[in-house]
Design a protein around this nucleic acid. Structure first.
Length: 471
RNA sequence: GGUGCCGUACCCAAGCGGUAAGGGACAGGUCUGCAAAACCUCUAUGCAUCGGUUCGAUUCCGAUCGGCACCUCCA
């Protein structure tokens, strides 16, 4: 069965066909490590992870590359913005290198906690300056650059297809009111490839180059690194939807101007996570990070479940109520898995009915990553009486390879009880059993209340009383 | 000014031409001294409004109303 993906370039769902039979080549824009990632940023990485897992599930080998932007990402367009890394360093009194290191570590802590599979190659911009310089030289030889005010610019007028991804109408843009006027630029949409001077003074990060000592522009890093690791023509490039009009548009211009041919076949973009006021950002509203959510008693997978409940190409509005719902659902899901595990081992093969569910799941995920449908299929097989327990478990594990909840690591239910080894609590359970037998329900209820304050929930089942630790 | 998206039950959210997935919540049931837990069952003749196309529209087209994002650093 083939995989279908929505390609931003064509604005339509297309059958996915990789360039090489060997493996799928995929590049994802990574974080700029000047601050913590908020949960909206994290949504995009979950989407990319589901994409990667779906391709793996479909039988492809995937070569996944992600960058770490630790230099060159400005706070503003043109050559008048301050470097985000430098700004953060100045404000915190640390070195830019320390800042990058600290936030990179924090980023991957979140990344891993959400069960995202790590990219095969993680590349830092500062380790690839020579590759960027080589690319800029190539553009220079091709006549796509000019120097003004000490900086090297890319001239978009030398690239006729400029703006094709975003379907920009350059005439409209030129007359628009929101374009900064920059006297150095021949065209307002031209952008810097290499900076040698900044009005914010000396940068800590500077390298020698044919154009003088300086540092690279933001867009050039992704072009240089992706081509280094994936070749000059690769399959998939993803990122957030906001990257379409500027970052990815400029990447395409540089890359295709340099090579003279198509650079990427499929462009996939994740939609935004919104909050009450609109777009989630670092400057407005509560700055929500994964640690904040964990601090309020949620598991990282609760957030993953919440995200998978919506389609990656739809805006999703975050609310605590929605996260509560996701957490309850996820707990219920894990409870079912725990019960099944206590009962049986996963089947080695699926019967006809379970196979039908598995096929349905594949069909939905292979159709532009319909994770909400996939989730419904997971519930479907778990609730289908026609499917034996062992097959339910096996089918659930199969689907989880894509959904990534980590169902195989869920503890079997019976082991829950064994966790309680508090002698005081166990003694109280004994006392309550005696009281119940004597029909002294008042005492029994008092003991139950006491256990509650100790942090245990009493469950009376047909086979006896058990204790469960409160979550 | 330009570009794109969305309005589906109490909430979240799929479906996008053939008669409404799933989850949560609520309610009922089994069990139980009661409760919790668990399990089962149930919840939209209707998908913002009004027109149009069609044998047939939530799905296509047009208009209207109401949200949102992007064109500026942003995932």
């Amino acid at each position: 069965m083939s995989v279908f993906l929505y390609n931003t370039m064509s604005r339509s769902v297309e059958p996915f066909k990789p360039i090489s039979d060997e493996h799928v080549t995929m590049y994802c824009c990574g974080p700029t490590v000047y601050n913590y990632a908020h949960i909206g940023n994290l949504r995009t990485y979950i989407f990319e992870d589901v994409l990667k897992r779906t391709l793996l599930h479909a039988g492809y080998k995937v070569k996944h590359v992600m960058n770490i932007t630790d230099v060159g990402h400005l706070t503003g367009d043109g050559d008048d913005g301050e470097d985000k890394m430098e700004k953060s360093a100045r404000e915190s009194g640390k070195s830019v290198w320390d800042i990058a290191c600290f936030y990179t570590e924090a980023f991957f802590k979140d990344f891993d906690a959400l069960h995202n599979i790590r990219p095969d190659i993680i590349c830092k911009a500062t380790d690839h300056i020579s590759d960027m310089i080589a690319l800029i030289k190539r553009l220079e030889v091709g006549g796509h650059t000019y120097i003004a005010g000490g900086n090297v610019y890319f001239s978009i007028d030398t690239f006729p297809d400029y703006g094709k991804l975003a379907r920009l109408d350059l005439n409209e843009l030129r007359s628009g009111a929101r374009i900064d006027v920059d006297d150095n630029k021949r065209n307002p949409k031209d952008f810097v490839l290499w900076f040698t001077n900044s009005k914010f003074g000396e940068q800590a990060m500077m390298w020698d180059s044919p154009w003088g000592r300086g540092y690279p522009g933001w867009h050039v890093e992704c072009s240089a690194m992706s081509m280094k690791y994936l070749g000059e023509h690769f399959d998939i490039h993803c990122g957030g939807i906001d990257a379409i009009p500027v970052h990815h548009t400029n990447e395409i211009a540089q890359s295709e101007a340099a090579t003279g041919h198509t650079w990427v076949n499929y462009w996939l973009h994740g939609e935004f996570l919104l909050n009450d006021t609109g777009k989630m950002s670092k400057s407005s509203g509560e700055f929500l990070t994964l640690p904040v959510i964990i601090g309020k008693g949620y598991e990282p997978v609760d957030y993953r479940y919440f995200i998978l409940g919506g389609h990656y190409r739809s805006q999703l509005r975050f609310s605590w109520q929605a996260l509560d719902t996701a957490r309850t659902s996820r707990k219920n899901l894990f409870d079912r898995i725990a019960s099944l595990k206590a009962e049986t081992a996963p089947a080695s093969e699926l019967g006809a009915v379970a196979s039908k569910w598995a096929a349905l799941f594949d069909e939905h995920l292979f159709n532009d990553l319909n994770a909400p449908r996939g989730l419904a299929d997971l519930w479907g097989v778990l609730k289908d009486d026609a499917v034996p327990a062992a097959e339910k478990l096996a089918a659930a594990y199969g689907m989880d390879a894509v959904l990534g909840f980590g169902l195989e690591t869920v503890r079997a239910r019976k082991q829950e009880d064994e966790l309680v080894d508090d002698p005081q609590a166990l003694a109280l359970v004994e006392q309550r059993a005696v009281a119940k037998k004597a029909r002294d329900f008042k005492l029994a209820d008092e003991i139950r209340a006491k256990l509650d304050t100790l942090g245990y929930i009493v469950k009376d089942t047909p086979t006896g009383t058990t204790l469960v630790k409160k979550m």
